[in-house]
Amino acid sequence: MANYNLCRVPQISLNSFDIGCNIGKGGFGKVYIAREKTNSYIVALKLLSIEQLIKENAEEQLRHEVEIQANLRHPNILRLLGYFQQSMYFILILEYAAKGELYKQLLKSGRLKEKKASRYIAQIAEALSYIHQKHVIHRDIKPENLLIDLNDEIKIADFGWSVHTKKSTLDYISPEIVEGKEHDERIDLWSLGVLCYKLLTGTTPFEETGRTATYKQIAKAEFTLPDHLSVEACDLICSVTVF
Rank of each mutant, 00 (worst) to 15 (best):
E144T: 07
E144H: 09
L128G: 08
L81C: 03
Y96R: 04
K99S: 10
M88F: 13
K167D: 09
L107K: 14
Q133C: 10
P143M: 11
Y120D: 05
H138V: 04
K142A: 05
I93M: 12
A58W: 03
L146F: 01
I77T: 00
K142R: 12
K115H: 12
E60M: 10
Y130Q: 04
K116Q: 15
N76M: 04
K113S: 13
E95H: 01
Q69H: 02
K142L: 06
L94A: 07
L62N: 04
Y120G: 09
G100Q: 05
I137V: 15
S168L: 01
H135K: 14
V136A: 03
G160M: 04
A122I: 13
I91Q: 03
N151H: 10
H74R: 06
R119M: 13
I154P: 05
F90R: 05
Q86Y: 03
I68V: 15
N76R: 11
A98R: 08
A117S: 10
P143C: 10
E95I: 03
Q105W: 13
S109C: 11
A122D: 13
I93T: 06
N145S: 09
A97P: 01
T165I: 08
L147Q: 11
L106V: 10
I137D: 00
A97V: 08
L128H: 04
L107F: 05
R79Q: 08
E126I: 14
I93H: 02
K115G: 09
K113Y: 12
K115M: 12
N76C: 11
Y120L: 10
L81R: 07
H64W: 09
I77D: 00
I68P: 08
A97M: 06
R63P: 05
Y120R: 08
E114M: 03
F159I: 01
S87L: 08
R139D: 00
Q86I: 05
S87H: 11
L147F: 15
Y89H: 15
H132L: 07
T165S: 15
K134N: 14
